[in-house]
Design a protein around this nucleic acid. Structure first.
Lengths: 344, 344
DNA sequence: TTCTCTACTGTGAACGCTCACAGCGTCCTT
DNA sequence: AAGGACGCTGTGAGCGTTCACAGTAGAGAA
């Protein structure tokens, strides 16, 4: 008879490895071996243990295991963004969900940590060292020292997007921002536009830099001049896009296309254009970046560049687990895809 | 000399309570007492221990602590939604972030678990029992047995929104859906609308039911007849809203206002109305629900009902921690707020 | 047969912490 | 003056697991 036959409302003491061992008629050691891959265990013992586990409803006590192994078998998803971006940017959702499910497949729980303030950052850093096997880092702004700190502390780490100034020391997974920007600008060119402007992302983020570089390179490839009046900085926010577009219309009223470095900003651009009485795409074509829900919500719906967020998340998890397993840091760059809708 | 003076690239063995004790010239027991509230410790010893902790950079090993206390000092945020909703609904973001930061203030890490499929659900249930002190449950569909299961397993639990058919056994925190709907419908009535329709939410969710009930009750209070042609079911999605609005225009072309049970659906309604050539708000007023980013993204911007998501998350955490501390389950209902913009 | 090798099994000893207990002084009460 | 109560301290045991090691039996080689 197992000790856990009833599971009433009060919490019972959960079965331990001893209970399983007794139930199966073997020793702790054998049960432990079964739990950890089942090597050097006779078929009969394996069977007995497995059925005993099933009968008792045993689950390994991860605290006890972690205490001795030193591993925690959990990883942190660390977000170091000012909160507005987290709210506004639906990509985080996709990324977070993707990481959660990819990890779940390996039975590794995910700890969500958000470090908006300096105090939160310190608390999280304290926690991470020693309580978590690795970190999935989402932090785009380059002022952020957290990647370097974690790396110095010897914590396995994968960043989403290339962390600036880290050489090749830290792993990262990123979309091909430069290639995506190139595809979009070339597409605008090929649909006949010749005064192609851009609303850039923040230039302290790798994405912002790369997309601008792609814009610039493609202009050159197409034989178009680079005109500084056509380049307006933005901050990835809707409001920022609106401001940027007004500025652009003032500086270069003859613009006939805008490559906007995020869908959210593109929404703002659309608003400004509407206020200014410009028709999209007839008067001005607008190209976004991200293929976020905002792209579908926009009127007209945005032609944009899809980032492979689902693959990004699964690659991040793959690289992180590999690194925890002892492999070297790796960089992965994934292709983007042009999505044609109504705005260009 | 502390043993941890350098923190080079290789991971050092972190300082233990023994190290701190030696450093402070006291015993393990005293250090432990300082760590757990500092009762029955002399001022001198307290001081010595605290400075030793600072010097060594000691952090308590939570695995060792959990092993003996039986608590894990962590809680799960369990999401049992089909994935589309998670993506589309920005409220989850706010909720998730709110819970994370509220918990962080108590030094309690949050484990994110998503149970989209049955297999995931089972895995998560297994993990939760014994590895987590409590659960923040976000699951609106009533077919979902997870609330009952967790409750039966004796796991402290707080749901977001009233879980259907649980009597008063499980704690929950919810916005005043009925009151919010009432405010909106009354507002539409007071701005002169007399053919007020509604696009309802799914009726297997408490929110959907309550908002419809509020609509119906307010109609009665205002002396307006209840007309079934004016009530169209929806599914909280943008596409669902568009379909619903087309149906509505067909069934009741003289509608002059629509109370839509979510902003996302309201966006769809706006699209359908635009296609049908109706002006908003001149021809038809549109009222949303949620005050999500979608409300600002919509054209015209949505008049809507704000749910106090920030307070919901902090209340959920408060109630859960209280319950873990031994208090009884509690129900909390928080007031909503009417936000006037351009659509009504 | 005897020896070695291999496959399998059981047994302490840790991991770092908390908790209960016992031992101490010191102060108050009777 | 004796007895308790109280504040503070150190010590041993044990939480549930893994790991290293020692031991056993059976198979194959000499």
């Amino acid at each position: 008879m197992s000790r856990t036959e009833q599971n009433g409302t009060g919490r019972r003491r959960p079965p331990t490895i001893h209970d399983v061992a007794r139930e199966a008629g073997v020793s702790r050691g054998t049960v432990s071996r079964v739990l950890n891959g089942g090597h050097n265990v006779s078929p009969a013992a394996l069977d007995a243990v497995q059925s005993a586990i099933r009968r008792t409803g045993y689950t390994v006590n991860r605290h006890a295991r972690s205490l001795i192994t030193g591993r925690s078998d959990s990883v942190a998803f660390l977000l170091t963004e000012p909160q507005e971006r987290f709210f506004e940017d639906p990509n985080f959702n996709v990324l977070l969900r993707g990481c959660t499910t990819a990890l779940a497949a390996h039975d590794v729980p995910l700890l969500l940590m958000i470090a908006g303030t300096e105090a939160e950052r310190r608390r999280n850093m304290r926690y991470i060292a020693g309580h978590v096997d690795g970190v999935l880092l989402v932090s785009s702004h380059s002022g952020d020292p957290v990647a370097a700190q974690l790396h110095d502390a010897g914590v396995p780490l994968v960043a989403c997007g290339k962390p600036p100034g880290q050489g090749s020391k830290v792993s990262y997974v990123a979309a091909d921002d430069l290639g995506g920007a190139r595809d979009m600008v070339r597409y605008l060119y090929e649909s006949g536009r010749r005064r192609i402007a851009t609303v850039a992302g923040p230039l302290d983020t790798p994405g912002g830099v790369e997309r601008l570089a792609g814009y610039r390179a493609t202009l050159a490839e197409c034989g178009l001049p680079y005109d500084e009046a056509l380049v307006v900085p933005g901050d990835y926010s809707r409001a920022g896009g609106e401001v940027a577009a007004s500025l652009l219309l003032e500086r270069a009223p003859d613009t006939d296309a805008v490559f906007v470095a995020s869908d959210l900003m593109a929404q703002g651009v659309l608003t400004a254009l509407e206020k200014a009485g410009r028709r999209v795409p007839q008067d001005i074509a607008v190209g976004g970046f991200d293929d976020s829900p905002a792209a579908l919500a926009a009127r007209p719906q945005l032609t944009t560049v899809r980032q492979p967020w689902d693959r990004i998340s699964s690659e991040m998890v793959r690289v992180l687990l590999a690194q925890i397993g002892g492999e070297d840091p790796a960089a992965v760059i994934l292709p983007t895809e042009l999505v044609r809708r109504d705005s260009a």
